[in-house]
Each structure stands twice: as C-alpha cells, then as structure tokens.
Simulated scan of single mutants.
Amino acid sequence: MTTTHTFAKAPSSAPLMLKAALPALPGIGGLPGVKHVGTDAPDVVLERPGVAVDADHLARYHEVCGFGPSDRLPITYPHMAAFGLHMALMTDVAFPFAPMGLVHLRNNITQHKPLTAKDVFDVAVRATNLRPHPKGRLIDILTDVTVDGETVWTENMTLFARGKGGAPEETPAPLEGLEAPSGVVRWKLAGNLGRRYGAVSGDRNPIHLYPVTAKAFGFPSNIAHGMWTKAHALAAIANRTPDAASVDVEFKKPILLPATVVFGARTEGRTTEFGVTGSKKPVTHMVGRVGPLA
C-alpha cells in the first residue's frame, strides 16, 4: 500500500544534507536509524501542493544557468521545486542506498507545455524500478508536476549505485551509442560554480563546493552539478527546443572545477543532439538529445 507524505513547503536542505552525509561516516553509518536498510524502491509518494514561483529565485536561476529573462520557466526549472522532496526521499533509511554514494547517471525531462512564472503547480516524487547494472544497480526517481490535475512536466532521474554482483541492463540506455557533437563554443567555468549553483538549487553536496570537501569523497577537486550542465546546455539551444519536448542526457565524466569545456550541438529536423567535452583531453562529460513529443 502506497504511503503519501505531504509537505506544505520545501523541506529544508541543510538538515537533509547532514542526514545524507551521516551514513558515510565511519562508526556512525552502521547505526540504527542511520544505516539504509531498504531492499527495494520504497512504496511512498512525497508531494508538495500549491508551489508558486518566486521571481527573485527565478532571476537568480536564469543568471547562474545562462537563460535569458522570460516569463516562461526554463525547461529544467521545475527540478528546483522537487529537489527538497528528492532529498527527503533518498535520506529515508527505507531508501535502498545511502545518498552520498549515488551517481546521477541519466536524466529525462518531458515538458508537455511550458510553465510560466504565474503558474501554481503541484509536485509529486517517488522511487521506482530498482534494477541491475553491469557495475552495480540503478534506481529511478520520478517527479510529476501538475496544474489543476493535468500533468505538464515530468522528470526521471536515473541514479547509479556501485556494487558487486552486477548484471547487464535489461533494456538499452536511451542514448546508447550517441557521441558528443564537435563544437567550438568554450565554457570557462570558475571554481566557485558549484557554490553559486548550490545557493540557488539548494544542492550543497560537499562534492560540488570546495576541493577539500570533494577530496573527502574521492574527487581530486570539486565538480560541477550535472543539472547545471544540462541547464546551461539547454540555455544555449533554447531557440531549438520545442514547447512540448523531451530531453534526455547521460552524464559521462564529472567536470572538475575550475575548467574549460567545449559545447557542441547538431540539429536535424526538430531534433538536436548536444554534448560537453574536455577542451584539452578527449573526454566526454555529457551527451544529450532534445526533440518534440511524438
């Protein structure tokens, strides 16, 4: 039986970030109430009704991600309203994985029609489809955004948990075989990008903030947020994104900050493929595809 938890406002991100970090601490991570004990996707829905857009927050999101001012919400913006619910879901010990060990591997956003800054919408989040991966397991976090009961926007975040006993994926990955298009546009990313995006998104995961905090989790430096990379890419091709669209990305290699990366895109008909690659080394950071709904 599905359990529903309703939030009147977005869950506070700071306590949730602390809760997310606890399972990774030696001597604490195995304690009852801290250790994740779930064996499947929890049968729970987290919802937040009546979400209104804050104009100042939207302006700051436009600025950090590179979108031009508009009354229409960027296609990635509803993710902001869902982030606290994502964290509340993943930090519950019934969730099968500790959040700090997860990798955001793939992301799909489907927009049935654009939202505007005046829209008031409802958000619902759930986990589903725990399944094998050659190097561990995958799980999906689904988000539904509705206006007056009509679904206008959905997101599927596919998270990867590394582990033993993996197996081939049962279905091909959505972007299997897609190579990043060549490009000439260079993005020069400052070392504080993670802190700037974290201040807007609420995602202050230590791996994004400072070199020293990222090194504690095995990274040589702090890394750019995957959802910033997706948003900045879509800002670059906003004039090629249909009003009703589906956007898939796969995150390949993290972008270590500071960095200079290359963005490329190619369009055939109404479908655009895009990617972000290293400026010096032949490494692919992200590939993506956006096209109209069928």
Rank of each mutant, 00 (worst) to 15 (best):
H112L: 05
R106V: 01
L138Y: 01
V125A: 10
N107D: 01
H133E: 09
F121V: 00
A124S: 08
P114A: 08
A124W: 12
V120S: 01
L130F: 05
P114R: 05
T128H: 13
H104P: 14
T116L: 07
K135R: 00
R106T: 00
F121Q: 01
N107L: 02
H133Q: 02
R137D: 13
G101P: 15
V120R: 15
L102Q: 00
P134D: 08
N108H: 04
P99V: 14
G101W: 10
T116Q: 08
L138K: 01
A127W: 04
G136R: 15
L115R: 08
P132W: 11
K135V: 03
A117D: 13
H133T: 08
T116S: 05
D122G: 02
I109N: 04
D122A: 13
R131P: 08
D140Y: 12
T110K: 09
V125P: 02
R131I: 07
T116V: 03
T110P: 00
P114Y: 00
T116I: 03
L102G: 07
R126G: 05
A98Q: 13
L102M: 14
A127P: 00
D119K: 02
T116R: 12
K135T: 12
K118W: 12
T110W: 04
T110A: 07
Q111M: 04
L130N: 02
A127Y: 03
N107F: 00
H104Q: 05
P99L: 15
G101V: 03
T116E: 12
L105T: 06
M100Q: 06
R131W: 02
R137Q: 01
F121L: 01
Q111R: 06
H112K: 03
P99W: 11
L105Q: 01
G101S: 09
L138A: 03
K113G: 06
P134C: 03
L115T: 06
R137E: 10
G101L: 12
V103F: 06
H133N: 10
M100W: 15
L138T: 01
T128F: 13
H112P: 02
L105D: 06
N129G: 00
